[in-house]
Computed example of a mutant assay.
Amino acid sequence: MTDPVFPSQHTTTTTVTNTEVITNFRYDKSYVYTLAGKLKIAQIVCVFLSIMTLSFSTYNMWYQNSAVTSIMMFGLWFSLFMLVFYLFHVVECFYKIPWLKIEMIFNVCWPLLYLLSAAIAASYIGMNFSYTLSLFFGFAAMFAYGYDALLKYHAIQRGEIAQGNNVMHKQTTISTY
């Protein structure tokens, strides 16, 4: 006689995740055509244009400009290095480093700093047109970093790695009693 509380069948699902990476350096221009690659290029271009317009200002020697330029230069160099790391698969070679978390933290902090630097540039809008352009490109960079942070957050939630593949194998076993 079967017990009505205990099911006559039991299903077990086992999920195994394997990480597939190629640990050699190689150039891969296809990263530039992905959404993440396009965002990196947009970040670099917007920050570069913001720095250039700010440096052509007649008030470029003020101490406020050095803070703004420092924030923008650090963002430019970080984005440029990460673009090169992705293009040459350095990120994939060192896949144990939590690249997505590092980038997400950077991409969360930097829009706040760009908002601060854009506010400083906005306080000088009436003085010079170059501050207006710097403000525009600073806000564009801020939105690019913010959207990239959102994409990195979703990738972390899905359990992805920065480069390479996480392959999941599911095995289902049904036992009948």
Rank of each mutant, 00 (worst) to 15 (best):
45 V>E: 03
61 M>A: 11
75 G>M: 13
75 G>T: 03
36 A>H: 12
39 L>K: 00
39 L>N: 01
52 M>T: 14
34 T>G: 02
56 F>P: 08
42 A>H: 04
61 M>P: 00
44 I>L: 14
73 M>Y: 04
39 L>C: 02
23 T>K: 02
68 V>I: 13
27 Y>P: 08
72 M>G: 04
73 M>P: 04
30 S>D: 02
61 M>H: 14
41 I>K: 03
22 I>P: 08
35 L>G: 02
27 Y>Q: 11
55 S>N: 14
50 S>K: 09
74 F>A: 07
51 I>P: 09
68 V>T: 12
29 K>L: 09
47 V>W: 00
39 L>P: 04
48 F>D: 05
49 L>K: 11
30 S>T: 01
27 Y>C: 04
45 V>F: 11
53 T>G: 03
53 T>V: 07
41 I>L: 12
68 V>R: 05
27 Y>F: 01
44 I>W: 01
76 L>E: 08
76 L>Q: 07
63 Y>Q: 12
54 L>W: 07
66 S>F: 15
74 F>I: 15
59 Y>D: 09
71 I>T: 07
50 S>I: 09
59 Y>E: 08
44 I>Y: 00
77 W>G: 03
77 W>C: 08
76 L>C: 06
72 M>F: 03
71 I>W: 04
29 K>S: 11
47 V>A: 11
75 G>R: 03
61 M>G: 09
71 I>F: 00
27 Y>I: 07
73 M>G: 10
65 N>C: 11
58 T>W: 04
25 F>W: 12
33 Y>P: 00
68 V>G: 04
57 S>E: 08
64 Q>W: 01
54 L>H: 01
26 R>N: 11
22 I>R: 10
34 T>L: 01
29 K>F: 12
41 I>S: 04
75 G>A: 15
36 A>I: 13
64 Q>Y: 03
34 T>M: 01
43 Q>C: 14
60 N>K: 08
75 G>D: 14
66 S>G: 08
46 C>G: 06
45 V>Y: 06
46 C>D: 07
49 L>M: 12
38 K>C: 10
34 T>A: 01
36 A>L: 13
63 Y>G: 06
71 I>M: 05
51 I>T: 05
67 A>I: 09
66 S>L: 06
44 I>S: 13
62 W>T: 06
45 V>M: 10
60 N>V: 10
61 M>S: 12
48 F>N: 08
37 G>R: 05
28 D>T: 00
42 A>D: 01
35 L>K: 09
31 Y>C: 04
67 A>C: 10
75 G>V: 06
60 N>I: 06
69 T>A: 14
29 K>A: 06
70 S>I: 08
68 V>P: 04
24 N>V: 02
23 T>A: 03
51 I>V: 11
48 F>C: 10
